[in-house]
């Protein structure tokens, strides 16, 4: 069989997958909007419990990682394999740092008993239970996507090293980049909704 190659088609497939993901998170945002409209006060107080500094740091590093991955595509297009690899490695490290921050953030919440099912949380009323339920689910699923992103980056770095991904065939890198930007896009909305809005 002749090998069929269609980079634009591959990219289109990735975009369609991104749409699926957008709707998946979208429904969580719908749930968030509904419960926020029902319990505005509790959601404000819940937001105050979250660490704005930590959230801002994570936002900044995620934005930086979005840039490094976008730059690595430019580097690949220019044939600069070494730079592309360096930029991807930086992205990978940032992804791990993001998760480490998340780990400490979650840990602190567990300590205060904001985790689902904790007796302290159950005493705090419905709005707060919903706020932290959504917080853990939404940031949790987001973190899961970061994990998948890390796996993808490792694969891409490995393929670049083996020259399977190169200057004229880099759609895997592009699609992984698209996926990573999706993770960033979601966070762009998660951050103000949970951490910022009072």
């Amino acid at each position: 069989m002749t090998v069929h190659r269609d980079d634009l088609g591959d990219k289109m497939g990735m975009w369609l997958f991104i749409f699926t993901e957008l709707l998946l998170f979208g429904m969580l945002f719908v749930v968030y909007a509904v419960y926020r409209s029902m319990h505005p006060e509790a959601f404000k107080l819940g937001g105050d419990e979250l660490d704005v500094v930590m959230g801002t740091i994570n936002t900044i590093i995620l934005l930086i990682s979005s840039m490094t991955v976008a730059m690595s595509i430019s580097a690949m297009q220019k044939g600069n394999k070494k730079l592309a690899l360096t930029l991807l490695t930086i992205t990978l490290i940032i992804a791990v740092v993001f998760l480490v921050n998340k780990y400490f953030e979650w840990g602190a919440k567990f300590e205060y008993g904001f985790n689902p099912g904790a007796p302290e949380l159950l005493e705090l009323g419905h709005g707060t239970i919903l706020f932290f339920g959504l917080y853990f689910i939404m940031t949790g699923i987001h973190a899961l996507h970061i994990l998948i992103g890390i796996a993808l980056f490792i694969y891409v770095v490995w393929q670049i090293r083996k020259d399977k991904i190169h200057q004229t065939d880099y759609v895997w890198l592009e699609n992984t980049g698209l996926y990573w930007h999706l993770v960033d896009l979601i966070w762009i909305f998660l951050f103000p909704l949970f951490y910022l809005i009072h």
Binding site: V69, A70, H181, D184, L185, I188, F189
Partner: peptide, 9 residues
Amino acid sequence: AAIVLAWFM
């Protein structure tokens, strides 16, 4: 989001 979509993506 629009900026990310337009340039990075």
